[in-house]
Structure formats: C-alpha cells, structure tokens
C-alpha cells in the first residue's frame, strides 16, 4: 500500500478540488490505510460545515432516482454537490453490486458533481466510521451540498443518518396503513417525508397517514421549531423535486447552526461519530485473528479460568 502524502499536501489537493485526491482518500478510509488518522484530524479541524442531507428509505422506493433529480435541480441553481451512495454488502460473500450511480449517470460528465459509491461492509462500527471519515473529506472541499444516501433497512444503515444535518425519508404509496406509520423506528427519523411514485392512486392516503402521524405527536414537543413536511414526488419525471428542494432549504433556514435544536443535533453527531471510531478500534483488534493475546484470553474463558468481563477490561486497558 502506497504511503499517504502528509496532511498539508492533502489539504491543498482537496482545496483545489481535485476529485482524484478526494477519491483516493476515501479508498484509504475504506481500506483503513495506516497513517490516516492525522490527515483526518487536520481535515476535520479545517472543516467547512457544508450542508449534509441524508436520504433513506426502503429498497426500491426511488431514492437514487430522487437524488438524481435533486442533483439536476441543484446544478440548475449553479450550485455544486457531492454524493455518497451506500449500498449493502452481501453477508455471505462480502461482495456488493453498487447500483446507485446507474440512476445518476446523466451527471457523470459534470465537474460540479462528485459521486462515490460505498459498500456497507457489514461491520457495526466500521460503516459509521467509514462514512463519518468520508464526510470529513468531503467537508474539506467547497461543496454547497453533500448528500448521503443509504438503504433504510437494518439499524446500521438507519443509524448513519445521524451524520446528516437533515434526513429525507423516502416512502412509496401502499407501504402500509396508519398502524404501520405509527410503528417506531424508521418513521421517527425523518425531518422531511417524501411519498415518491405519487402518480399511484394510493399516494394521497399515504400522505394523510404520515401527516396524521406527525401532527399527533406535535403537542408532546411544543419546543420543537421544525415540523416535518410531507412532500409528494415522482422521481422519474421530476415532479415535486423543486418542492422538496425548497423544504430542504427551508429546513436549513429554520434550523440555523445557533439554534438550540441544531446545536443539540451537532453535539449528538459528534458523540455518535466518536462512538463509531471507538467501536471500530476495539472491533478491529478483536477481528484480528493474529492477535495471540486475545486468542489466549478466549482459551482461558473457555475453561472458565477467566470471563468475558475480564477480557473487556484487558482490551480497554490496552487502548490506554
């Protein structure tokens, strides 16, 4: 593995918005190249605080096509955008087919758009850390918007949305009745709800379910300054995209960085990111089968001369 250039050099390369420097740095993040940490530290401290939009929802809801339309809209306004599109890895082979880019191909030749696909790779801490780190790199570049897209299945992929400033939750008509809408989990994380494929005759019903779910909870949180809108879109034609983009911009004008809500969110994000890094360091050590010390401890636990809690203490102590 080639050695990384020093942090200063990388910062310069990124500020002259070199796609290649950015792409290679994200590869280094995915491959956990040694020497990366000091680079990320420098980049983080010089971060621009770009607007990060998270987009999630069930498979086939039309997220990538929606992102494609959003890119078109953003570019029409003369603004730039970077996309991080995360697709699941196979739990069996570890491989992946990353197909999000396929839906965004019309922007492939546009120098104001950077699209990077990432495979989720299945580790708990790993994905959080990899996406968090990739966002550090993108935040060091002068993007007007950064979009993170994940499939909203699995706690892992949903969790990633904590790294975004605002979360767009994409659903389709016929995705369930009012009881489904009331279930905890995915329905709670949206800042903006999208009912895509809105030409379907059940679309209005789905919109009503979502709206009633939102308004029902309102009185419990009177201090909230943002009420989630429900937007109807049609990714294929671009219908409703301008509406969605306006809601996104409205979010940022209501949830300014100095509002208590946004401050709290950013604090949560830092805590979440830190936990991801922490978990990754520990898990990496644990999955390293060459680590004889861990293997010996497991042997001792097997014969009940030791116990899992003792190994945890050992691991934590070893990290200093």
């Amino acid at each position: 593995m080639n050695a990384l250039p020093d942090p200063g050099e990388i910062t310069n390369a990124l500020s002259s918005d070199s796609f290649r420097a950015c792409a290679q740095l994200i590869t280094a993040i995915e491959r956990a190249t040694p020497g990366l940490t000091p680079v990320l530290q420098v980049l983080y401290r010089g971060g621009r605080g770009n607007r990060i939009i998270g987009i999630t929802g069930p498979p086939g809801a039309g997220k990538s096509s929606l992102v494609n339309q959003l890119i078109t809209h953003i570019r029409r306004l003369g603004k730039t955008v970077a996309i991080l599109a995360i697709d699941p890895s196979s739990p069996f082979s570890g491989g992946a087919v990353l197909g999000d880019r396929l839906r965004m191909m019309q922007h492939s030749a546009d120098t104001g758009v950077f699209i990077r696909s990432m495979a989720s790779r299945g580790q708990l801490g790993g994905l959080t850390k990899a996406v968090g780190d990739a966002l550090i790199v993108l935040d060091a570049m002068p993007w007007d918007y950064i979009i993170v897209e994940t499939v909203g299945v699995g706690q892992n992929e949903l969790d990633i949305m904590q790294l975004a400033d605002t979360v767009v939750l994409v659903q389709t008509p016929m995705s369930g009745d009012d009881v489904q809408a009331a279930k905890a989990g995915i329905n709670e994380i949206g800042d903006i709800y999208v009912v895509n494929k809105c030409d379907h005759n059940e679309a209005d019903r789905t919109v009503r379910f979502l709206q009633s779910m939102i308004t029902l909870g309102l009185h419990l949180q009177p201090e909230k300054i943002w009420t989630q809108p429900v937007v109807k879109t049609q990714s294929v034609s671009g219908l409703g995209i301008e509406d969605l983009a306006n809601h996104i911009d409205h979010f940022f004008s209501v949830m300014k960085p100095d509002t208590p809500d946004m401050r709290l969110r950013r604090r949560h994000r830092i805590a979440y990111q830190t936990k991801g890094i922490l978990r990754d360091i520990l898990e990496r050590r644990f999955h390293d089968s060459n680590d004889q010390q861990i293997e010996n401890s497991i042997d001792a636990i097997l014969t009940r001369q030791s116990d899992p809690y003792a190994l945890v203490s050992e691991l934590l102590a070893a990290q200093g």
Binding site: S89, S93, V97
Partner: peptide, 19 residues
C-alpha cells in the same frame, strides 16, 4: 464478481468513454 467478494460499480448502458 459480487459472489466472489468484489465490489462492483455497475454503470449500465449509454456510457460515453468520458463518463
């Protein structure tokens, strides 16, 4: 290739060399 553990970025049809 996916089943062989590789990560495949599938670009699809109508790609120009530049894309």
């Amino acid at each position: 290739l996916r089943d062989a553990g590789m990560e495949v970025v599938y670009l699809g049809v109508n790609q120009t060399p530049g894309m």
